[in-house]
Write a protein that binds this DNA or RNA. Structure first.
Length: 431
DNA sequence: TCTGGGGTCCTAGGACCC
DNA sequence: TCTGGGGTCCTAGGACCC
């Protein structure tokens, strides 16, 4: 018996999370914005119907607030993250093998489950709606790529009531359905590949499914070749299981943000970089890693084409791996001084921690005495603990600034209904 | 006025090794 | 005239994902 995968995801996830605690948002056009209230990152069905594009800058859609009662919200990742954890815990009950693919999506390995999968999937959707108030869709297929595509079909065609499985199609039905879907909908086929595939006469999912694998490999490499195989039901991508969130080690950690207002001077940029590196170092310790390289970058606003642009980055190798935010902040600050150029209006800065490896494999500096290391470790642990208990930034590096004016805009953020007792009551006020 | 943040994988090419 | 074969590691850049 071949493999069976399911892909489950939340419909308009961010908007749905907001609606759970604020029923007034139901039935209305709602969008959730990215950091700085810049771009549209989630749209309700009603907002889509207005023709609002995913990823579009908000100012392009702002007129709908007046004309169509469009409601906009700043993103509240604390809320979405917590709702996501609850969603994933429920879904984990469907199968012991689960890959959490993004904040609102997971793959499940259903291989070998004998009972009626469609019925089980429907029951799970109801359970999630009942327990969490979140609408979901489920796609089932014999490869991850097919499960993804099935999910897309479940979303587009209400007749399927939120669940679609390729297992209930014969080959003719399958091909007919695939012919009706554009190749760009396939997982792993983005904008550039779509253009190149179209030039070869490949327009629909079905065209890609029957394309020659050797040609695809020669022209596009092994990644797309795998996709073609997966469309043919040959599973090439395994589940990447994620039992314990803390054991999933990232290969790089990024912390970057656009500024609410342009920043001109070095001291302010330094505050930003120190605060970003602090955040990155926290993530680094959370996954019990050290980093061997550190990258700092700054840039002006690329959309302000009429102004002269400047963007520069610097990579700093660390002689010994580090996870102490004081040392990292010092190095990042020095790096920043090297790339800073006066006279520009900076819009964004960021740091990346690279060359990550498990902390227990760290090598000591010949000149660093063990007590120093222990002290550093204990201090960092204490800071992390305090910030966890009393809220992030309770104890922070002075270099991050006391009252920075560059912080991002977030004018319409909803309360943290599920993670802060003092904000919970607002859910009742909304009723 | 106003355009996000955080990741992954693969490939090509250069430096270096025996 | 004419200069091997096989390998590793690292980095930059490009493509994709949500």
């Amino acid at each position: 018996m071949g493999a069976v995968f399911a892909l489950v995801d939340g419909n308009n996830f961010y908007v749905s999370c907001e609606r759970v605690f604020n029923p007034h948002l139901e039935g209305k056009p709602v969008v959730v914005l990215s950091n700085n209230d810049g771009c549209i990152v989630a749209r309700s069905q009603e907002a889509r119907a207005l023709g609002i594009r995913m990823g579009a800058p908000f100012f392009e859609a702002k007129h709908f607030v007046q004309s169509h009662g469009l409601i906009w919200l700043s993103s509240n990742y604390t809320l979405y993250g917590d709702m996501s954890a609850r969603l994933m815990a429920l879904l984990g009950e469907l199968s012991p093998h689960q890959e959490i693919y993004s904040i609102d999506e997971c793959f499940l390995d259903l291989t070998g489950i004998r009972s009626d999968l469609l019925a089980q999937a429907q029951a799970m959707r109801k359970r999630i709606k009942h327990y969490l108030g979140l609408p979901t869709c489920i796609g089932i297929g014999s490869s991850k790529t097919l499960a993804k595509l099935a999910n897309h079909i479940a979303k587009k065609h209400p007749d399927y009531k939120g669940v679609f499985s390729w297992q209930h199609c014969n080959r003719l039905e399958e091909d007919a359905l695939m012919s009706s879907i554009e190749v760009s909908e396939v997982w792993g086929v983005g904008r550039r590949l779509t253009i190149k595939l179209n030039q070869l006469g490949i327009y629909s999912v079905c065209d890609l499914k029957y394309a020659s694998t050797s040609l695809i490999r020669k022209r596009f490499g092994v990644v797309l070749e795998r996709t073609v195989n997966e469309l043919n039901g040959v599973s090439c991508l395994d589940l990447e299981e994620t039992h314990d969130e803390h054991l999933v080690r990232k290969h790089q950690i990024i912390s970057s943000k656009s500024f609410g207002k342009p920043v001109h001077h070095l001291p302010e940029l330094q505050e930003a970089v120190v605060s970003y590196i602090s955040r990155a170092a926290e993530k680094l310790r959370q996954q019990q890693s050290f980093c061997s390289h550190l990258l700092v970058y700054i840039r002006t606003n690329p959309f302000a084409q009429h102004r002269e642009q400047y963007a520069k980055s610097i990579t700093i190798p660390l002689i010994t791996g580090k996870d102490d935010k004081r040392q990292l902040a010092e190095l990042a600050s020095q790096g920043l001084q090297k790339i800073y150029c006066a006279g520009y209006a900076y819009k964004k800065a960021g740091v990346m921690l690279l060359g990550l490896y498990p902390a227990h494999q760290a090598q000591d500096d010949l000149f660093c005495t063990p007590p120093e290391r222990t002290r550093s470790h204990r201090l960092m642990q204490l800071m992390d603990q305090l910030n966890h208990t009393y809220g992030s930034n309770t104890l922070r590096l002075a270099g991050a600034g006391l009252r920075p004016r560059w912080t991002m805009r977030s004018l319409q953020r909803s309360p943290n209904y599920t993670t802060a007792w003092n904000e919970l009551a607002q859910a009742y006020a909304n009723r």
